[in-house]
Structure formats: structure tokens, C-alpha cells
Computed example of a mutant assay.
Amino acid sequence: MTFTTKIAVLLRDDLPTWQRLNVTAFVISGIAGTEPGLLGEDYEDADGTRYLPMLGQPVMIFEGDAALLAQAHTRALDRALACAIFTDELFKTGNDEDNRAAVRAVPRQALSLAGLAVHGPRNAVDKILKGARLHG
């Protein structure tokens, strides 16, 4: 199945594995939380046990250096494409209120991005992520 939109996560390539996983989970929650049409139906096993819905299309995971992440962030904002971000400061906080305060305390150009997620038309997302490589 071909989708007209793309969901992508871009991670900074120097993060340890646990941080990559943490960042991915957080930024994808932002995409799913603001785009309810992206969620599919509940799952159900053969015994009738219900499970929560998940995104109905693949999530592509990319990586790049800090400069590429900053460039992708700028490209997303220039294209008016909403994005979810995770900054280095969020590794030091323990709740949503402190997370928001940590981001609010830093001007956009000075954000130390660990990762971001975007959803939008395929070609726009591809342009935003130009230069990134698939996470491997």
C-alpha cells in the first residue's frame, strides 16, 4: 500500500541506544496525539482480547548529525509542517510540566535537538529529511 503522507523520526546520530528509543517514543506520541486520523482501529486477538490502536502507516526512522537535525527542524517550520521535538534538556526532567518549561526556556535557534518527528505529504517530508540516512 502506498501512502500519500509520511511519518518520519530523525534522531541525532550520537545518542546512546536507550536515548534513541526514548526520543522515538516521545516524539511519535506527539504525532499520534495531534493527528487522530492516523490511528487505526483497536486490535483484537482470536480470544477476543482487545488491544489499543496503533498508527495505521509505517514510521520511518532516520539519523543524522546535530547540524542536519537543526536544518531539518528549520525546513519543517519553513514548510509550516508541525513537528514534535525532543531536546537534550528533556533527559534531565521527570514530568511533562518540566519538559515544557525546559523547551520554553531556550530560543528556537539554540535548541539542542536530540530528535524530531514530522508527518505530512511524502515529498515535503523527504525534502525536510534531505541528507539523513535510514537508521540502522
Rank of each mutant, 00 (worst) to 15 (best):
residue 53 P to L: 03
residue 36 P to C: 10
residue 59 V to N: 02
residue 70 A to R: 09
residue 136 G to A: 15
residue 87 T to F: 02
residue 3 F to Y: 15
residue 2 T to Q: 00
residue 70 A to G: 08
residue 29 S to C: 10
residue 107 P to Q: 05
residue 92 K to Q: 07
residue 32 A to V: 09
residue 21 L to E: 09
residue 129 L to T: 07
residue 110 A to F: 05
residue 128 I to A: 12
residue 118 V to R: 06
residue 86 F to Y: 14
residue 117 A to G: 05
residue 122 R to A: 09
residue 109 Q to F: 07
residue 1 M to G: 15
residue 1 M to S: 14
residue 57 Q to T: 09
residue 9 V to T: 13
residue 50 R to H: 11
residue 44 E to V: 06
residue 5 T to Q: 15
residue 53 P to K: 08
residue 87 T to G: 01
residue 3 F to I: 07
residue 85 I to P: 00
residue 117 A to F: 02
residue 22 N to S: 13
residue 80 A to M: 04
residue 56 G to S: 13
residue 46 A to S: 14
residue 42 D to Y: 08
residue 94 G to Q: 08
residue 112 S to E: 07
residue 75 R to M: 02
residue 126 D to I: 01
residue 53 P to M: 02
residue 70 A to E: 02
residue 43 Y to E: 12
residue 36 P to F: 12
residue 29 S to D: 13
residue 80 A to V: 00
residue 104 R to F: 06
residue 136 G to I: 13
residue 127 K to M: 05
residue 3 F to N: 15
residue 32 A to M: 15
residue 98 D to I: 07
residue 32 A to F: 15
residue 53 P to Y: 04
residue 43 Y to L: 13
residue 80 A to Y: 11
residue 91 F to K: 06
residue 71 Q to F: 01
residue 32 A to T: 10
residue 101 A to F: 05
residue 116 L to G: 09
residue 47 D to P: 03
residue 7 I to K: 10
residue 111 L to M: 06
residue 75 R to V: 02
residue 129 L to P: 00
residue 9 V to S: 10
residue 18 W to R: 15
residue 124 A to V: 10
residue 105 A to L: 02
residue 34 T to I: 04
residue 126 D to P: 04
residue 6 K to H: 04
residue 45 D to L: 06
residue 122 R to F: 08
residue 78 D to W: 10
residue 45 D to M: 07
residue 19 Q to G: 10
residue 53 P to F: 02
residue 8 A to N: 00
residue 20 R to G: 15
residue 58 P to W: 05
residue 88 D to H: 08
residue 4 T to V: 06
residue 64 G to F: 01
residue 132 A to H: 11
residue 114 A to M: 03
residue 118 V to C: 09
residue 39 L to N: 09
residue 115 G to H: 04
residue 24 T to P: 08
residue 11 L to Y: 15
residue 56 G to F: 00
